[in-house]
Nucleic acid binder design. Structure first.
Lengths: 91, 91
DNA sequence: AAACTATATTCTCTTTTTGGAATATTGTCA
DNA sequence: TGACAATATTCCAAAAAGAGAATATAGTTT
Protein backbone atom coordinates (compact mmCIF):
# COMPACT_ATOMS: atom_id res chain seq x y z
CA UNK A 1 0.00 0.00 0.00
CA UNK A 2 1.09 3.53 -0.78
CA UNK A 3 2.75 5.95 1.65
CA UNK A 4 0.28 8.68 0.70
CA UNK A 5 -2.63 6.49 1.71
CA UNK A 6 -1.08 5.79 5.08
CA UNK A 7 -0.51 9.51 5.56
CA UNK A 8 -4.13 10.21 4.74
CA UNK A 9 -5.36 7.54 7.12
CA UNK A 10 -3.02 8.90 9.77
CA UNK A 11 -4.64 12.30 9.31
CA UNK A 12 -8.04 10.72 9.89
CA UNK A 13 -6.96 9.09 13.13
CA UNK A 14 -5.18 12.23 14.32
CA UNK A 15 -8.38 14.14 13.83
CA UNK A 16 -10.18 11.61 16.01
CA UNK A 17 -7.46 11.52 18.66
CA UNK A 18 -8.91 14.19 20.92
CA UNK A 19 -11.73 14.06 23.48
CA UNK A 20 -13.45 17.24 22.36
CA UNK A 21 -13.44 16.17 18.75
CA UNK A 22 -14.79 12.77 19.72
CA UNK A 23 -17.61 14.46 21.62
CA UNK A 24 -18.36 16.50 18.53
CA UNK A 25 -18.52 13.33 16.46
CA UNK A 26 -20.94 11.81 18.94
CA UNK A 27 -23.14 14.90 18.77
CA UNK A 28 -23.12 14.84 14.99
CA UNK A 29 -23.94 11.13 14.89
CA UNK A 30 -27.25 12.28 16.27
CA UNK A 31 -27.74 14.55 13.26
CA UNK A 32 -26.57 17.77 11.67
CA UNK A 33 -25.79 20.62 14.08
CA UNK A 34 -24.71 24.24 13.72
CA UNK A 35 -21.53 25.51 15.36
CA UNK A 36 -23.43 27.48 17.98
CA UNK A 37 -25.36 24.41 19.07
CA UNK A 38 -22.20 22.36 19.40
CA UNK A 39 -20.47 25.16 21.27
CA UNK A 40 -23.34 25.40 23.70
CA UNK A 41 -23.69 21.68 24.31
CA UNK A 42 -20.00 21.07 24.89
CA UNK A 43 -19.60 24.18 27.07
CA UNK A 44 -16.42 25.08 25.28
CA UNK A 45 -15.02 28.31 23.82
CA UNK A 46 -16.22 28.92 20.28
CA UNK A 47 -12.75 29.22 18.68
CA UNK A 48 -11.80 25.85 20.02
CA UNK A 49 -14.91 24.23 18.61
CA UNK A 50 -14.33 25.96 15.30
CA UNK A 51 -10.77 24.68 15.09
CA UNK A 52 -11.92 21.20 16.01
CA UNK A 53 -14.57 21.17 13.32
CA UNK A 54 -12.13 22.34 10.71
CA UNK A 55 -9.70 19.59 11.61
CA UNK A 56 -12.41 16.96 11.35
CA UNK A 57 -13.52 18.38 8.03
CA UNK A 58 -9.99 18.45 6.56
CA UNK A 59 -9.65 14.80 7.48
CA UNK A 60 -12.84 14.08 5.52
CA UNK A 61 -14.92 12.95 8.48
CA UNK A 62 -17.53 15.69 8.45
CA UNK A 63 -18.92 18.13 5.92
CA UNK A 64 -20.42 21.58 6.25
CA UNK A 65 -23.30 23.54 4.79
CA UNK A 66 -23.77 27.27 5.15
CA UNK A 67 -27.10 28.91 5.75
CA UNK A 68 -27.00 32.61 6.42
CA UNK A 69 -24.84 33.30 9.40
CA UNK A 70 -24.88 29.69 10.49
CA UNK A 71 -22.70 26.80 9.42
CA UNK A 72 -24.11 23.31 9.85
CA UNK A 73 -21.86 20.31 10.19
CA UNK A 74 -22.68 16.65 9.71
CA UNK A 75 -20.96 13.28 9.51
CA UNK A 76 -19.71 12.38 6.05
CA UNK A 77 -18.37 8.89 6.65
CA UNK A 78 -20.84 6.08 6.97
CA UNK A 79 -18.83 3.64 9.10
CA UNK A 80 -18.03 6.09 11.88
CA UNK A 81 -20.98 5.15 14.06
CA UNK A 82 -20.39 1.42 13.76
CA UNK A 83 -16.75 1.66 14.68
CA UNK A 84 -17.40 3.89 17.68
CA UNK A 85 -20.08 1.62 19.03
CA UNK A 86 -17.73 -1.32 18.62
CA UNK A 87 -15.16 0.63 20.64
CA UNK A 88 -17.77 1.42 23.26
CA UNK A 89 -18.54 -2.24 23.68
CA UNK A 90 -14.86 -3.04 23.93
CA UNK A 91 -14.13 -0.48 26.67
CA UNK B 1 -20.95 9.89 28.23
CA UNK B 2 -18.14 9.82 30.74
CA UNK B 3 -14.87 11.74 30.47
CA UNK B 4 -12.86 8.60 31.20
CA UNK B 5 -14.42 6.84 28.26
CA UNK B 6 -13.54 9.69 25.95
CA UNK B 7 -9.98 9.59 27.26
CA UNK B 8 -9.78 5.89 26.59
CA UNK B 9 -11.15 6.28 23.09
CA UNK B 10 -8.71 9.12 22.52
CA UNK B 11 -5.90 6.77 23.49
CA UNK B 12 -7.11 4.27 20.90
CA UNK B 13 -7.12 6.85 18.12
CA UNK B 14 -3.75 8.24 19.17
CA UNK B 15 -2.33 4.77 18.89
CA UNK B 16 -3.67 4.55 15.35
CA UNK B 17 -2.53 8.03 14.37
CA UNK B 18 0.83 7.06 12.93
CA UNK B 19 1.78 5.57 9.55
CA UNK B 20 4.10 2.91 10.90
CA UNK B 21 1.56 1.75 13.44
CA UNK B 22 -1.10 1.62 10.74
CA UNK B 23 1.18 -0.52 8.61
CA UNK B 24 1.65 -2.83 11.56
CA UNK B 25 -2.11 -3.12 11.96
CA UNK B 26 -2.44 -4.00 8.27
CA UNK B 27 0.21 -6.67 8.63
CA UNK B 28 -1.50 -8.13 11.68
CA UNK B 29 -4.89 -8.13 9.97
CA UNK B 30 -3.33 -10.79 7.81
CA UNK B 31 -2.61 -12.89 10.90
CA UNK B 32 -0.37 -13.15 13.94
CA UNK B 33 3.25 -12.10 13.41
CA UNK B 34 6.37 -12.01 15.56
CA UNK B 35 8.31 -8.80 16.14
CA UNK B 36 11.18 -9.89 13.91
CA UNK B 37 8.85 -10.56 11.02
CA UNK B 38 7.20 -7.15 11.37
CA UNK B 39 10.58 -5.45 11.70
CA UNK B 40 11.79 -7.12 8.54
CA UNK B 41 8.69 -6.43 6.46
CA UNK B 42 8.47 -2.77 7.40
CA UNK B 43 12.22 -2.18 6.98
CA UNK B 44 12.32 -0.25 10.21
CA UNK B 45 14.62 -0.24 13.25
CA UNK B 46 13.61 -2.82 15.82
CA UNK B 47 13.25 -0.41 18.79
CA UNK B 48 10.82 1.68 16.83
CA UNK B 49 8.69 -1.32 15.97
CA UNK B 50 8.82 -2.47 19.56
CA UNK B 51 7.65 0.90 20.83
CA UNK B 52 4.90 0.97 18.24
CA UNK B 53 3.64 -2.45 19.23
CA UNK B 54 3.60 -1.54 22.90
CA UNK B 55 1.59 1.58 22.19
CA UNK B 56 -0.96 -0.38 20.18
CA UNK B 57 -1.14 -2.99 22.92
CA UNK B 58 -1.65 -0.43 25.69
CA UNK B 59 -4.52 1.01 23.72
CA UNK B 60 -6.09 -2.44 23.60
CA UNK B 61 -5.84 -2.92 19.86
CA UNK B 62 -3.46 -5.86 19.78
CA UNK B 63 -2.38 -8.61 22.14
CA UNK B 64 0.83 -10.57 22.52
CA UNK B 65 1.92 -14.12 23.16
CA UNK B 66 5.45 -15.20 24.07
CA UNK B 67 7.11 -18.28 22.70
CA UNK B 68 10.75 -18.71 23.62
CA UNK B 69 12.68 -15.71 22.39
CA UNK B 70 9.87 -14.58 20.15
CA UNK B 71 6.85 -12.45 20.89
CA UNK B 72 3.87 -12.83 18.61
CA UNK B 73 1.36 -10.04 18.21
CA UNK B 74 -2.16 -10.19 16.82
CA UNK B 75 -5.24 -8.01 16.47
CA UNK B 76 -7.54 -8.06 19.47
CA UNK B 77 -10.38 -5.87 18.25
CA UNK B 78 -12.81 -7.36 15.82
CA UNK B 79 -14.04 -4.21 14.04
CA UNK B 80 -10.59 -2.92 13.07
CA UNK B 81 -10.56 -4.53 9.65
CA UNK B 82 -14.01 -3.33 8.71
CA UNK B 83 -13.31 0.24 9.65
CA UNK B 84 -10.00 0.34 7.81
CA UNK B 85 -11.51 -1.06 4.66
CA UNK B 86 -14.27 1.51 4.89
CA UNK B 87 -11.58 4.18 5.13
CA UNK B 88 -9.77 2.68 2.17
CA UNK B 89 -12.89 2.93 0.05
CA UNK B 90 -13.40 6.50 1.19
CA UNK B 91 -9.89 7.69 0.27
C1' DA C 1 -23.60 52.29 6.24
C1' DA C 2 -23.40 50.83 11.21
C1' DA C 3 -24.19 47.57 14.57
C1' DC C 4 -24.66 42.89 15.49
C1' DT C 5 -24.16 37.76 15.29
C1' DA C 6 -21.99 33.47 13.98
C1' DT C 7 -17.93 31.55 12.69
C1' DA C 8 -12.95 31.47 11.47
C1' DT C 9 -8.05 32.74 12.02
C1' DT C 10 -3.76 34.07 14.15
C1' DC C 11 -0.38 34.28 17.82
C1' DT C 12 2.11 32.58 21.60
C1' DC C 13 3.21 29.42 25.04
C1' DT C 14 3.18 24.78 26.93
C1' DT C 15 2.80 19.95 26.50
C1' DT C 16 3.03 15.75 23.91
C1' DT C 17 4.80 12.91 20.38
C1' DT C 18 8.43 11.46 17.44
C1' DG C 19 12.55 9.06 15.85
C1' DG C 20 17.30 7.76 16.53
C1' DA C 21 20.99 5.97 19.17
C1' DA C 22 22.53 3.46 22.86
C1' DT C 23 21.68 0.06 26.16
C1' DA C 24 19.17 -3.32 28.93
C1' DT C 25 16.56 -7.56 29.48
C1' DT C 26 15.26 -12.22 28.78
C1' DG C 27 15.36 -16.71 26.88
C1' DT C 28 18.21 -20.29 24.34
C1' DC C 29 21.88 -23.20 23.38
C1' DA C 30 26.62 -24.79 23.20
C1' DT D 1 28.40 -20.28 32.48
C1' DG D 2 29.18 -17.52 28.31
C1' DA D 3 27.75 -16.13 23.84
C1' DC D 4 24.01 -15.08 21.11
C1' DA D 5 19.38 -13.71 19.43
C1' DA D 6 14.94 -11.41 20.05
C1' DT D 7 12.67 -7.91 22.20
C1' DA D 8 12.16 -3.92 25.37
C1' DT D 9 13.64 0.42 27.61
C1' DT D 10 15.79 4.86 28.28
C1' DC D 11 17.47 9.29 26.90
C1' DC D 12 17.46 13.20 24.11
C1' DA D 13 16.53 16.73 20.60
C1' DA D 14 13.22 18.04 17.19
C1' DA D 15 8.63 18.38 15.56
C1' DA D 16 3.77 18.55 16.23
C1' DA D 17 -0.40 19.36 18.84
C1' DG D 18 -2.65 21.70 22.61
C1' DA D 19 -5.16 25.70 24.98
C1' DG D 20 -6.32 30.47 25.57
C1' DA D 21 -6.68 35.15 24.22
C1' DA D 22 -7.25 38.43 20.85
C1' DT D 23 -8.84 39.57 16.43
C1' DA D 24 -10.73 39.00 11.77
C1' DT D 25 -14.37 37.84 8.44
C1' DA D 26 -18.80 37.51 6.49
C1' DG D 27 -23.70 37.55 6.50
C1' DT D 28 -27.86 40.00 8.59
C1' DT D 29 -30.70 43.55 10.17
C1' DT D 30 -31.95 48.20 11.01
Amino acid sequence: MDKKIYDKKTEVFKALANPVRLEIIDLLLDGEKCVCEITEKLRCEQPRISKSLIKLKKAGLIKDRKDGLNVYYSISICCMGEFLSCLNKML
